[in-house]
């Protein structure tokens, strides 16, 4: 089965983000496909390459990087939300004259069309948070 995930939860508040990554890992382990995860609103903070977690807390970014690198999962941040939350990739940082990119290169910053396209092709949409 093909799944699309929509993540609305902040990576640092509540459990939505952690559950989304765990769901993705479990679904892939059972032979399902996750082509794209779309992050919206506070969920876009998941893509931060600047956030520093305390040493005794799990790294919130690492599970997503593994999903992208090992399973080719596309990680897409909604551009409207991302800009408001200061989540800029190199292209957006240059466009808006900001000193550096804040988004990890494993993530793509793009529009809602990417979500609609992924949902069109998916058997199931699962939303985390909201």
């Amino acid at each position: 089965m093909i799944y699309t995930l929509l993540v609305l939860s902040s990576p640092t508040s509540g459990h939505g983000g952690r559950h989304a990554a765990a769901f993705a890992q479990a679904a892939i382990a059972r032979g399902h496909q996750i082509e794209r995860v779309f992050f919206l609103d506070q969920g876009t903070e998941t893509g931060s390459q600047m956030a520093v977690m305390p040493q005794d807390e799990p790294n919130r970014l690492q599970p997503w990087l593994e999903l992208a690198e090992q399973h080719g999962v596309e990680l897409v941040l909604c551009i409207a939300s991302a800009l408001k939350h200061g989540m800029l990739d190199a292209g957006e940082a240059a466009r808006y004259d900001r000193p550096c990119a804040t988004v990890h290169p494993a993530f793509v910053v793009s529009g809602l069309g990417q979500f609609i396209d992924a949902t069109d092709r998916a058997d199931r949409l699962v939303t985390f948070g909201g």
Partner: peptide, 14 residues
Amino acid sequence: GALARAAIDMAMAM
């Protein structure tokens, strides 16, 4: 919160 506006944007994108 921001989610109502985000949902309106989503509806318009659809």
